[in-house]
Computed example of a mutant assay.
Amino acid sequence: MKIQSKRWAKSVAIVLVASTVASCGVLPRSGPNKSEIFAGSVQQSGDAFVVSVNDRVTRATAVQPTLGFSDEFKNAGLVGSDTIRPGDTLGLTIWENVDDGLLAGEGVNQTVLQEVQVDGAGFIFVPYAGRIRAAGNTPEAIRRVITSKLDEQTPDPQVEVRRLAGDGASVSLIGSVGGQGVYPIERPTRTLSTMLANAGGVTIQPEIAQVTVIRGNMRSKVWFQDLFNHPNFDIALRDGDRILVEEDTRAFTALGATGGQARLPFPSPTISAVEALAQVGGLNTNTADPTGVFVMRNEPAEIANQVLGRTDLIGAQRVVYVLDLTQPNGLFMARDFAIRDEDTLYVTEAPFTQWSKVISALTGTLGAVGSVSTAGDTLSGN
């Protein structure tokens, strides 16, 4: 009778274990599997388009933010280091080649005009020469104009023009530069790259540095490295320019059976799916399914229509791109497929992984049942 009771207890325990594992429904895992993702496609009454990546898809989706200065910035000429501005104060000295000149008294051939201020309209007044445009000109240009005006009234006048007060043309630099502040536009620093160098250069990785120039109501942005890769982007600076250096803010999220799960910034202006996987340590060799690499994004309508061969889609569309790394050209497709801002890169677990978890769960639980059964035998005196 005791033997039958022990066998009955063991049978009940095994049935309970099997029922427990079966009733778990979903074993622990990193996210949905391939069949669950495909079940969410538009073709199966879901709300996302699932698209296998091929050469046509990589070309249609290879859209990256283009940065560069507009023609207004690129066509601006160099500014002289000594350009006069409204509000500056000038000093003038005029020599006349006569004993009794227009400006100088008898026996004196030199006249000094101190603190001649450039008015708000950019003009100065010089006796016998009249109102002269000063703002936007160099002291040398002003000297030539005054000389020409006076030459009509006194023989061989000699004129000297000096800036006594005023900062001249200057720009302000803020953000990730060696030294933030206001810098004058001088002969060696009349272009964007030389001004940045004068401020100590950029203090972030050059590959992710973006430079924004604000000029009046205009604003334009360029990659820092393009200043050297494309010389026409090394624009001439203007008085009052504001220069901001900041880090690229784009990022993508990696989830699933990868070496690590994280939200990561872009390490360069462009990044491929292969590079994105490398950023998180590649596929997890113990759990990853190389046929189930997905890139999920909200695709603009114009790109979604092109990818899907349609013309009726309006607004952003949820698109899931599928990469199969086991295909003969799978790695090439992943290398050519561009990751974009706010993408989610997800790698599914291999089916074998779930079987391993089931077996582990059964093995571990049955071991526990064996312990319980042994304890039962001990309590029953067997």
Rank of each mutant, 00 (worst) to 15 (best):
2 K>R: 13
3 I>C: 05
7 R>V: 00
19 S>G: 15
21 V>A: 10
22 A>E: 08
25 G>A: 12
39 A>C: 02
43 Q>F: 06
43 Q>S: 14
44 Q>V: 07
48 A>K: 13
51 V>H: 11
74 K>G: 01
76 A>V: 13
77 G>K: 02
87 G>H: 04
95 W>N: 01
103 L>K: 10
107 G>Q: 06
109 N>Y: 00
110 Q>C: 00
113 L>P: 03
124 I>D: 04
125 F>D: 10
126 V>M: 01
133 R>L: 15
148 S>E: 00
148 S>T: 01
151 D>C: 03
163 R>H: 01
167 D>G: 15
168 G>R: 06
169 A>R: 05
171 V>F: 04
172 S>A: 14
174 I>N: 06
182 V>A: 12
184 P>V: 05
201 G>N: 11
205 Q>F: 07
206 P>Y: 05
212 T>I: 08
219 R>P: 06
221 K>T: 15
226 D>L: 13
234 D>P: 08
237 L>V: 09
237 L>K: 03
238 R>E: 14
239 D>I: 08
242 R>C: 02
249 T>N: 08
253 T>R: 13
253 T>C: 05
258 T>K: 02
260 G>K: 15
265 P>W: 07
273 A>G: 12
274 V>W: 01
279 Q>E: 14
284 N>L: 02
287 T>F: 11
287 T>D: 11
289 D>A: 01
292 G>I: 05
293 V>A: 08
303 I>T: 15
307 V>S: 07
307 V>C: 12
314 I>A: 13
323 L>R: 14
324 D>V: 05
324 D>L: 07
327 Q>I: 04
329 N>V: 11
334 A>Y: 03
337 F>G: 08
349 E>A: 09
351 P>V: 01
354 Q>I: 13
356 S>H: 06
359 I>A: 10
366 L>R: 08
369 V>S: 04
370 G>L: 05
370 G>D: 06
375 A>H: 00
376 G>N: 01
379 L>S: 02
